[in-house]
């Protein structure tokens, strides 16, 4: 579904991403973990064509993302607040997304109703502009915006950040439900190993732009990652 080939991105002399080969299959939930500055967000930005790689390329359904814009019709993403149109209310933002993805009005309201327990758009809070919302609420709006078109590929950067514990649990359910029946390929990054281990089928560990471990999610692999971080902490 998604492939990276000889991917290299540098900022000055610093290597941000260096991935010679990576393949994410259809229906996989691929979690990316790593310390701050490991290159996770840069990699996700490369995936959605927000950065130009120095060498190599990212392929979505075998087509380079910079070559065609077709991938946008089946890909949803939320990386940071630059994905939000902050002078709209949440409902206006969702309506706008539904219009550009050619969704029907009923379809939109059905979808929003299904995410009601995560973000209720009928509360007085939702009549505010997005810029007036709290960080957590903004984050929820961004995540729902990415989910709204029911994309085949969903790319989320730190989706659990700013969320309260209940919302984290609900989001895990939402993300898991779409991918459980293998209809959606989910790519997400997080600092939180627990969240990653709870929902991902495959986990990759990134450090200094390189993927140093990439394996199926099971108890051994997760304890191996935990050991890695413990070792790093002890070393420093």
């Amino acid at each position: 579904m998604i492939k990276a080939e000889n991917l290299l991105k540098k900022f000055g002399n610093t290597v941000a991403v260096d991935i010679p080969e990576l393949s994410i299959r259809e229906g996989e939930i691929w979690g990316l973990v790593g310390n701050n500055g490991a290159g996770k967000t840069t990699f996700l930005r490369l995936m959605v064509d927000l950065l130009k790689p120095d060498t190599g390329r990212i392929l979505s359904k075998s087509i380079p993302v910079y070559q065609s814009e077709h991938w946008k019709s089946y890909t949803g993403s939320f990386i940071d607040n630059n994905f939000l149109i902050e002078f709209l209310t949440p409902l206006e933002y969702f309506k706008f997304i539904s219009r550009i993805y050619e969704m029907g009005r009923n379809d939109l309201y059905e979808k929003l109703e299904s995410y009601d327990h995560f973000l209720n758009i009928k509360t007085p809070e939702s009549s505010k502009y997005i810029r007036q919302l709290s960080s957590g609420e903004k984050h929820k709006v961004g995540v729902i915006g990415a989910l709204l078109s029911d994309p085949e590929v969903l790319i989320l950067d730190e989706p659990f950040n700013f969320l309260d514990p209940s919302s984290q649990i609900i989001l895990k359910k939402i993300l898991g439900s779409g991918s459980r029946n293998k209809t959606r390929t989910l790519i997400l990054s997080s600092h939180n190993l627990n969240h990653i281990s709870d929902i991902c089928t495959r986990v990759a560990l990134m450090e200094k732009g390189k993927i140093i471990k990439d394996f199926q999610n099971n108890r051994e692999s997760m304890s191996e990652i935990e050991d890695y971080f413990r070792y790093q902490t002890d070393k420093s």
Binding site: S73, T75, I79, I100
Partner: peptide, 13 residues
């Protein structure tokens, strides 16, 4: 500029 990432990565014509 504050939402150009969205413009560039969504199906925004």
């Amino acid at each position: 500029s504050s939402y150009f990432d969205f413009i560039s990565s969504a199906k925004f014509d």
